[in-house]
């Protein structure tokens, strides 16, 4: 009896804390986003820092995205190839693989990977700058951490998440073609022809459009947790952890919402 009471109490305490944390996050990250938007449109502009972040966050993620997309293409092609073979539907492989990669797997898997690599990197870097007072130093030297630190990362992710997704789409579909050719005996000419004739432009654009939001989620979440890091190295670890978990969950949730929205739009 005593124990049940304790567990119920514990459960509600956790629930309350989580909700409180979520509310704080929602308020804080929206405020951060608004401040960043204001900073984007007021001088001075630091173009060099933006380019640097595009390189660090975007280009340096290429190999990760490449491997993810290639294996996704392989796996999808294998699964659909052998799965559909049972119903004599092997020739649908190019369509199904192309569509699932462009609409869903390209954008979502790429951005989940970026949440892991980039989101954690942002939170850890800003978090350790924070606990070593470098963020304070930026302010004390009469400059703005939002402009110097947050804006370049947010803009870089807004640009690089869609670009990397386009890259992932191509690699994934290419990977699908390799397996179709070698394992399923599908002629590559047929694969490409099918792909081009059956896929619609909207399949591509909807997939890529989502990633603008995902890129924003990853960068803003990372910056938010980095900037509110307290408590030394342990705090940095925790900030990194929160940043990855929160942005991954948000990506999955917003993916559903946007997909639903896009289908509604497409049906009109």
């Amino acid at each position: 009896m005593q124990q049940t009471k304790y567990f119920i109490f514990y459960f509600f305490e956790r629930l309350f804390k989580t909700l409180w944390h979520l509310l704080n996050f929602a308020g804080g990250s929206v405020a951060l986003l608004l401040n960043s938007v204001r900073a984007i449109f007021t001088p001075p502009f630091y173009f060099g820092l933006f380019v640097e972040q595009c390189y660090k966050l975007g280009l340096r993620s290429c190999s990760l995205v490449f491997i993810t997309a290639l294996s996704t293409g392989f796996v999808m092609s294998l699964q659909f190839g052998y799965g559909l073979e049972r119903f004599g539907g092997k020739l649908y492989v190019p369509k199904v693989v192309g569509m699932s990669i462009m609409r869903e797997l390209g954008p979502v898997l790429t951005c989940l990977m970026l949440a892991g690599r980039v989101g954690s990197g942002i939170a850890a870097e800003i978090g350790s700058m924070n606990v070593t007072q470098q963020i304070d130093a930026i302010r004390a030297l009469g400059t703005d951490p939002i402009k110097r630190i947050v804006v370049p990362r947010v803009l870089a992710m807004l640009l690089m998440a869609p670009l990397l997704t386009v890259f992932a789409d191509l690699v994934g579909i290419g990977g699908g073609m390799i397996i179709s050719m070698s394992e399923l005996n599908i002629n590559p000419d047929f694969y490409i022809y099918e792909g081009i004739t059956s896929l619609k432009v909207t399949d591509f654009t909807f997939g890529v459009t989502k990633t603008f939001l995902f890129g924003l989620l990853i960068s803003v979440t990372g910056c938010y947790y980095g900037l509110r890091t307290t408590g030394g190295t342990q705090g940095v670890g925790q900030a990194t952890n929160y940043a990855v978990v929160t942005s991954s969950i948000l990506i999955v949730i917003f993916d559903f919402i946007l997909t639903k929205l896009f289908w509604i739009l497409e049906k009109i």
Partner: peptide
């Protein structure tokens, strides 16, 4: 402001 540990970038 001079920070305690320098706070160098």
């Amino acid at each position: 402001y001079v920070f305690q540990y320098g706070a160098l970038f």
